[in-house]
Each structure stands twice: as C-alpha cells, then as structure tokens.
Design a protein around this nucleic acid. Structure first.
Lengths: 237, 237
DNA sequence: CGTCAGCTTGATTACTTTCAATTGTTGTGG
DNA sequence: CCACAACAATTGAAAGTAATCAAGCTGACG
C-alpha cells in the first residue's frame, strides 16, 4: 500500500468513524479541531513518536495498527497498549505537558491525523463532556495498566501468552475464517507484550500448539480452542 | 490513638492542608463539597473500601497512611499505590461509575473525610480547573503504574526491593534521625509492594544489610547509603 | 506466661533466562 | 528473477533466580 492509496478527510466531521473520543463531540467542535489538522502516512515499522520527546499535538489514527511501548533500563521493550483506527494517542503528554511516556510504532502502514494542541485545549475548555471522556479514557488505561501489572507480577509465562492472544483477539478481531488473529506480530513483539523473552515466547507457542489450543501459520496465530485459552489465561470478565 | 483525639474540621475550607487536589479550588467551592461531608476514624488494619464494591463518594485523607492494593486470582496481593494526608481516594471509580479497582487499607490509625458524589460532580462541572487537576492526577497515577509494570517485568527482586525502599522514603519521608523510614510495613507488605514473596523479601533485606546499604531495627528500615540504593534500584529521575 | 502471628533460615524444586548455533524468510540490488 | 544480506524464528543446553515447602524462632499482647 502506497501513500495516496487512502484518502483522509480534511475535517473530523467527515471522518466517518463513530467510536472514538473525538467522534462523540458536536460537529461544530470537530470543525474547530480540524483547523490546522495535519495528516500523515507512516510506513510499517516507522515510529510516530518517541518516549521522552515533547508533544505538540494529539494523534488520531484514521487507519492502521499501532503499538505503544516503553523501554526498561537495559533497553528491553514492554508493549503497554495497542491503538487502532479511532483511537487517540499522545493526549496524556499533551495535557500534562510532559514528554511522551512511551514510543508509538506503526505495526502496519498507517494513516494518522494530527490535531493541534491549541485547538484541542480550546474545545476541552468549552465542552465539559469532552473532558469527562478524557477522564474516562485515562481511567480505562489506568485500569488496564494495573491489571497488566498484576498479570506480570503473578501469572506464569504460559498464562500471560494465553492472555496476550486473547487480548489481541479482543483488540483486533479475527479474519474471515473466524480463527486467525487479524494482526501480525513478530515473536519478539509477542514476547514484549507478555513480558518474557523471544525464545520463551516461541517455546510457549509450541506448547500451546501441542495442546491444540492454537495453531500457527508462519507468523499468524490461529485460535483453536478459545474457551480453554481463556481458562488458562485466567480471565474472568 | 483513640477516636476523638484528632479534631477534623467540618469544612474543607478550614482543613489547613495545602497540597491536595481539593485544596487548590476556591473556598466557596470547598464549602459546596463540605455540605454533607462525613468524616470517619479507621483503626490500623481496617479496610476503607474493598475492590469490587461500588463507590458512593470520594475519600480524602485528613491524617494517616493508607495502602491501595489489588488481588490476583490466587489471592496474592499487589500494592499499587500509597496515600497519605491530602490525598484523595476512590475518585476514579466514582467518576467512571465502576466498582473500586483496589482495596484501601489503613496502615495506621486514620482520619478520613468523605465527600458526596453529587457535590463533587457539581463542582467538577462548574470548575474546569478541577477537572484538569483530576486529569493530571490520573496521568500521574497512570505514569506510575506503567513504570511499576516495567520494573516488575524487567528488574530483579533486589532492584525492586531497593526501589521500594526509596519510594517509601519519597512518599513518607524519614524520622528525625534522618535515616529511619517514617512508615512501618510488615515484611509481607514490603513483598506485596515489590511483587515477590515474604521469604525472598526478608532474604533481600538481609543482603542489603550485609552490604551496609540499609540497617534494620525490628520492622523499621534505616537507609544507610541512599545513593548506592538509588543506584541499585536504577532510578534516574 | 502461653499463644499466635509474623519473622527467619534452610533445602529443594521449578521456571525462565541466557547463550550458542542453525535454519528459515524477506527485501533489495544487480 | 536470482543471490545475498539482514533479520526473524527455532532448538538445545546450561545457569540462575526466585518460589515453594518445611521448621524453628521471636516478640507482642491478653
């Protein structure tokens, strides 16, 4: 897919997406956001923003999948979250005037809009509902981060890999066959997600395949026994 | 310390604390919050609210130390945060209308005020600055949670125990001698904080004592070589 | 002064990481 | 389109770290 293959609307009110934080505000406010809006194409693997850099706006994904990761001291990466179309990125650093807490990397070719800081703040002041939405979003992210913390602290690698697969399914869904995860990760990314090493991730995938809970097709992962996978993952909600 | 030994003001405007989220709003708004405000005494070890229960207000600590923890599946506890005078608790569940994400337990005898949900929401709608403060607070909590996640995922137990000690010092400070942490934790609580077992926490404390970085006096922990401790913990800020 | 909870120590076990080597895949330039 | 370089996946073996299990020990408190 080349740049230009996808047409990004100039105005947020014409975006067509429904579920995002921005989607729920009034059209007139969307048009305020859209003034000075930029849009960019990011090739697979390209970094959208780096941990530690300063924010000058807010990103909203029009199309594509993005991972948000943080580096430990020794340079090992931890994936803390994913984002896909509709999702906004970088709002936290923008609001708290701090450097980015994580690095956002395109997992596939992406189209991303950029809203200026000033415009967003302007709408935020006008619209109490938007700030409530932001609070809700932060709450959700915080809840997820704390859950991941408990998982890493208390679950075994096998449980975490099983959970990661279920999370991927819930975030990105399945392909038409109803089994294949609709996202491609490297083994190393899966390891970064489950907080383990590449080798252990591979061995654990082999073990889950052995037990017929999943199957593998190159990098693609197929869910063969979802309920048992959920069971192993220890997910109850 | 018995109930009644401490006098809690009836109004937030007379509270005297300066640093909390609530402290920074106007007196007139504080008085709105104070209508229907309750205040309670919690004995050491008593639970202020339980994970999973529903929120009907916001807690603000007038005096005392509180731990916020979450349970894993197998019942093992993870301390995710501490709170002390000035700090507010339970606002997240209140705002997002979800059950409490964690359990708050008094680590020593505490005096805690309770602000009604309605009053808080009322002020929140009036005062854009308060909602911004809440956003900042959530951002900070999220940043801390993600940092803790990286720590648990990537640091050794020794590093995490060292870091826990430094965090305790930064949160609760030292006694008059300039060395003793001004907070008492059981070994098991320290383990729950550093995401390890009681036995390993004890062995690690012994090791740090051996290396003359800390010393122990019953349950109390004395910092003997702070810079080296920070060094081991891998804290750079 | 007995009891109970929390602390401490030792020994063993299990899980993961690390290191090393090999094979497989992909993208690129000629 | 092929060859090659670079990167990703896989497998095996060894080493380490921390959890678990099992006993004493200690100190606070009625």
């Amino acid at each position: 897919m080349k740049r230009g293959a996808v047409k990004i609307p100039d105005k947020c009110s014409e975006c067509g997406h429904k579920e995002g934080v921005i989607c729920k505000i009034a059209d007139i406010e969307k048009d305020i956001l859209s003034e000075k809006k930029g849009s960019n194409y990011y090739k697979k693997g390209q970094v959208i923003f780096y941990e530690g850099n300063h924010s000058n706006g807010l990103y909203c994904i029009y199309k594509g999948k993005v991972k948000i990761s943080k580096l430990g001291e020794d340079g090992k990466e931890q994936i803390v979250r994913f984002a896909k179309e509709n999702d906004i990125l970088g709002y936290r650093s923008m609001l708290s005037k701090e450097p980015y807490h994580g690095t956002a990397t395109a997992m596939e070719d992406c189209y991303v809009c950029m809203v200026s800081k000033d415009r967003f703040n302007q709408v935020l002041e006008q619209d109490a509902k938007l700030s409530m939405n932001v609070i809700q979003l932060l709450s959700k992210d915080l809840r997820n981060a704390e859950q991941l913390l408990i998982d890493v602290a208390q679950k075994s690698v096998k449980e975490r890999i099983a959970e990661s697969i279920i999370k991927l399914e819930r975030t990105f869904g399945l392909k038409e066959d109803g089994k294949t995860l609709d996202v491609i990760l490297t083994r190393s990314e899966l390891a970064d997600m489950a907080a383990t090493t590449t080798e252990t991730a591979i061995r654990t995938l082999a073990q889950l395949t052995e037990e017929a809970l999943i199957s593998l097709n190159g990098k693609a992962i197929l869910i063969e026994n979802k309920s048992q996978l959920i069971n192993i993952a220890g997910i109850y909600d």
